[in-house]
């Protein structure tokens, strides 16, 4: 069947099965590979995107549940890495292998949108993405830096 997804401000008609997870529509059908596959069960958060501004794990979100909503991926956060979170990530030298970082950044952006001055407990609760390289201390510091909170 054909359905239309609104990705990064553009409508994309796609002829795919409605149960296809958004992740694979992004990666395989639209070539947006910045969003990563890590677990397929919504556990690791490497696939985090925004749907109407909310952080959502796209590996567990069928495309037919996204129809009519606005999806934003890491590629559209800025055109030039100028988003405050991206700048904080570079400044704080957060990524190691980097594979989980698209999802980590998307989760952080959603957190800061909802809660511009998150406490440590807020960060603990919101950032449940997994990172095997162990970037968590710098993730926390970069979120605070982006929020203008002294570390």
């Amino acid at each position: 069947m054909t359905l239309t997804l609104k990705i990064n401000g553009q409508d994309h008609p796609l002829d795919i099965d409605p149960d296809t997870p958004l992740l694979w529509a992004l990666r395989d059908n639209l070539g947006l590979t910045g969003t990563k596959y890590g677990c397929g069960i919504g556990q690791c958060g490497a696939c985090t995107v925004h749907i109407d501004g909310q952080a959502v794990r796209s590996c567990a979100m069928p495309v037919d549940a996204c129809a009519g909503q606005s999806v934003t991926t890491i590629e559209a956060l800025s055109t030039d890495r100028s988003h405050a979170v991206q700048r904080a990530w570079i400044e704080g030298q957060v990524p190691q292998c980097g594979y989980c970082q698209s999802g980590m950044i998307m989760a952080a952006v959603a957190l800061l949108k909802e809660n511009p001055k998150p406490s440590d407990a807020d960060i603990d609760a919101a950032i449940t993405n997994l990172c095997r390289c162990g970037t968590y201390p710098r993730v926390r510091a970069a979120i605070k830096a982006a929020a203008g909170i002294a570390a």
Binding site: T33, K36, S78, R81, I90, V94, S102
Partner: peptide, 21 residues
């Protein structure tokens, strides 16, 4: 000093093996 690989790791542009098309 800042690592050279990091900018491409904050905007989804780096291509890992699994991203090859």
């Amino acid at each position: 000093l800042p690592r050279q690989d990091i900018p491409a790791k904050v905007d989804g542009s780096i291509v890992y093996g699994l991203d090859v098309r």
